[in-house]
């Protein structure tokens, strides 16, 4: 449960205000340049390949798994062998097929939760960073208070009252992540709002809404992208943790966190494979999103 409550605040933004003329074209060139740098980074390539693999698994589901992950039963607790690459679980289902199919639930839930939290958090963050003053003070205190609430505990409480449906799990994780995103985006906005082009826009008499959405938001899109990839990683972790505690996705879904919680006690009976492989799957997904996030961040600030 090492879900971070706080992340290193990403300060500093992209290059300073572009010249007034041909801003669009120059931006496009800069973007292409960054993309070129990105694909040359091994971390990005490895991360993307892993991500792509899991996306294929999630989309393909039981159509592409070697065996039916839910309905095919063989002798239970077989060690990894030629027929069952990752062995079979306590009911005799193929662990390899279950790990592949298990990508679906988390790959749907995690990005949606991340998108929601990044959308809400960015909105709050930009407002706080742009207006500053009392708006910022009040919202900051609320965010601080939200951050001090134990994440998993509140999630468990909400889920125990409202039931453990996918929508509730996604919504809960999204709400819990929002303040963290808001804090990061606020920091980026603060740095951006002091730059000349924002001042210029203000002097032109543009409305606050215009400045925030048309001027600031595009310029902190890098920060937001990184924040999104990082949040996806943590969402995977949080959703798995909730499943582990019995409050997330329910059986017979081959979801990784759920599978781990159902099988981790078999390790002491010598059956390590039904637990180890989903654990490695979670790790690989988290690492992959981190690699991609790190690469984007490095290229952006280079």
């Amino acid at each position: 449960m090492s879900i971070e409550s706080v992340d290193p605040v990403i300060v500093g933004g992209p290059a300073p205000a572009p010249p007034v003329f041909d801003a669009r074209g120059e931006k496009r060139i800069a973007r292409r340049e960054r993309l070129r740098l990105l694909v040359r980074r091994p971390g990005f390539i490895v991360g993307s390949v892993i991500l792509l693999f899991w996306i294929v698994c999630a989309v393909g589901g039981d159509n592409i798994t070697p065996l039916d992950p839910i309905n095919d039963f063989d002798v239970s607790n077989q060690r990894p062998n030629a027929d069952h690459l990752f062995g079979t679980d306590q009911l005799g289902r193929d662990v390899f097929s279950r790990v592949m199919a298990g990508a679906r639930d988390v790959l749907i839930a995690a990005p949606i939760a991340a998108v929601l939290s990044v959308a809400m958090g960015s909105m709050l963050g930009v407002i706080m960073g742009y207006y500053r003053g009392w708006v910022d003070e009040v919202l900051s205190r609320i965010i601080e208070a939200l951050l001090s609430i134990p994440v998993v505990l509140v999630a468990l409480l909400i889920i125990s009252v409202l039931g453990a449906s996918a929508i509730i799990v996604i919504g809960t994780v999204a709400v819990l992540f929002t303040p963290i995103v808001a804090r990061t985006v606020r920091a980026a906005t603060l740095a951006e709002a002091q730059l000349d082009y924002v001042t210029a826009a203000r002097l032109r008499g543009e409305s606050g809404l215009f400045v925030m959405t048309r001027e600031i938001l595009p310029n902190i899109s890098g920060t937001i992208t990184v924040e999104f990839t990082v949040r996806v990683g943590y969402a995977v972790f949080t959703i798995s943790t909730l499943s582990f505690l019995g409050a997330g996705i329910q059986p017979p879904s081959p979801d990784w966190g759920l599978t781990i919680s159902d099988t981790y006690r078999l390790i002491q009976a010598g059956f390590w494979w039904p637990t180890l492989f989903p654990a490695l799957a979670i790790a690989s997904l988290v690492i992959a999103t981190n690699l991609v996030a790190d690469s984007i961040d490095t290229v952006r600030s280079a």
Binding site: I70, Q250, P251, P252, D262
Partner: peptide
Amino acid sequence: AVKFQEIPDFAALIQA
């Protein structure tokens, strides 16, 4: 089914 002891596994066996 209720998430209690072996019941989820029992349910999976019935289903299959």
